[in-house]
Amino acid sequence: MNGRFSALACAAALGLALVSGGALAADKFIVVQSTTSTQNSGLLDELLPKYTAKSGTEVRVVAVGTGQAIKNAANCDGDVLLVHAKPAEEKFVAEGGGVKRFDLMHNDFVIIGPESDPAGVAGMTDAEAALKKIAAAKAPFASRGDESGTHQKERSLWKAAGVDVKAASGDWYRETGSGMGETINTGVGMGAYVLTDRATWSAHKNRAGYKILVEGDKDLFNQYGVILVNPAKCPNVKADLGQDFIDWLLSKEGQDAIAAFRINGEQQFFPDAQKSAS
């Protein structure tokens, strides 16, 4: 009878060993600190297998907000940084965190909102004016509030519009402190306007009658950059493998792959690597 317990313990241990045995053993890999938009939109799911097939290097993506991605990279926790907040990226390189910043691709931001459109911004192409109207109507607006690239862009737009959102925080201005997808979910739940990158919105399933209301302003341009984490500062960085991945992204093959990515037949990211490093 005592044996039953021991037998079970043995079985459990054995099962555990078997499960553990299934661990991935690939040692040729790099860690990319990236933003949620590239992952949630499905872009990376399309790009990475192509690269891995060609190079044999597994690419492990940690998808977080741009702010956190840069912080993680500054802690040497990653080989490559792929984000979208140019001023912050340039600061990161200037401080020695990264080797060099390359323009990789762009898409654009859009303002989405409920069909009822309480602030009446539908069809506008001037983001500043649209935000002013939203503020004037005190219509709910859901912000990432997480120092992500999107959040940084949104703040610069509010500043340009001359609206002090800090004063309205908790009132009509709601900071979710979470990722793009979660913020859309939250916004949809409370009927709030949301500034989002187009790719995340295109891939988002929980739409609940939301539509793109404002688009086409050149201020809504969303530039992505790619940076090799500085091996001089972070000896653990796999500089060769990381640089090879960056080279591939910037090559014709990589750029074509970015351009080929479609959601509902619509191109989401526009490669623009021809420009030299900034």
Partner: peptide, 9 residues
């Protein structure tokens, strides 16, 4: 968490 953030509720 990921699927929630994609709106795949």
């Amino acid at each position: 968490a990921l699927e929630t953030s994609k709106g795949n509720l």
